[in-house]
Design a protein around this nucleic acid. Structure first.
Lengths: 150, 150
DNA sequence: GTACCACTTAGAGCTAACTCTAAGTAAATT
DNA sequence: AATTTACTTAGAGTTAGCTCTAAGTGGTAC
């Protein structure tokens, strides 16, 4: 059994956050000792990991709460829970695709600024950021730092 | 030249958000006509796309503002701007790695709930969610829905 | 010329998710 | 026995990022 402080250490969430989550109905499964203090089991830790996973993949606390309630309700909610995870799976795929698009743009910008630094000025640099791996060219006539010759 | 309403349409941001960004110093480059209304150029649209990219990859508005200020300052900030994009590139790599880990967990959960749905109860299902592609087994003795034969 | 519409501003309100404070309790250490 | 520590609660405060309202302006359509 773990105290809230120990769970905070293990999970990376603060005690405040854990109590907040409990208050918001995300942890109805946590037991209390006779002094009223929370006692977390290994299984509870696993569930908190799962909550963290859903949270980190963009699910809002109120949605996570619904999932927790379903989990407590038992086997009649299995199909609904499967649907939730399938939807979350797809959501993460979408997020990764979006991130990849943004990364393409950032990659372009890195190449652009590398060229600009080399030339000493942005004016000498041209390229189309909409096309991934588009060529970036330096107009030698506009250089501030002269081109190093081999 | 585009009005704020047209830019809202094109960019997917609301007029409110665009004015808020302007107010927060993210768009010092936008010109005004003699009536005091904002007039956005094609180049401004490109810059707003870039702001959106930085935002979507987790950069806070105050950091984006610093970048915008550097961009306005001219060529002496080129190296700093390159550093910003390199850092953001790495940040996105980290985010994608994290997302992939979470996706592994979601993938496991989908397989887990598929098995549970097939068995009719969670009790019959076992597997270790910490190991990607870990085998999931159904204890036939604990099934609620009998196994389909043949 | 007047009605309408998109714009302008300052500033208030909202939401999600914490984050902290204050007052109090219970158990363990000195 | 007294102090320290980790916990408890309710509820207030904070932050980021919008989102909206109210009052007013300027240009176009009828």
């Amino acid at each position: 059994m773990y105290s809230i402080g120990q769970v905070a250490e293990k999970s990376g969430l603060s005690c405040y956050t854990l109590r907040y989550y409990d208050h918001e109905g995300l942890m109805p499964f946590v037991h209390r000792n006779k002094a009223g203090r929370r006692e977390f089991s290994e299984h509870d830790l696993d569930f908190i990991d799962l909550i963290t996973c859903l949270k980190a993949t963009g699910m809002q606390l109120r949605e996570i709460r619904k999932f927790v309630e379903m989990s407590m309700a038992g086997d009649e909610t299995l199909a609904d829970r499967l649907a939730i995870f399938k939807a979350q799976q797809e959501s993460v795929h979408d997020q990764m695709a979006q991130l990849q698009k943004h990364l393409d743009k950032l990659n372009f910008k890195v190449r652009y600024y590398e060229a600009a630094c080399e030339a000493g000025t942005e004016d000498a640099v041209s390229g189309n950021c909409e096309i991934p791996d588009a060529p970036i060219t330096i107009d030698d006539a506009k250089r501030v730092k002269p081109k190093k010759v081999g």
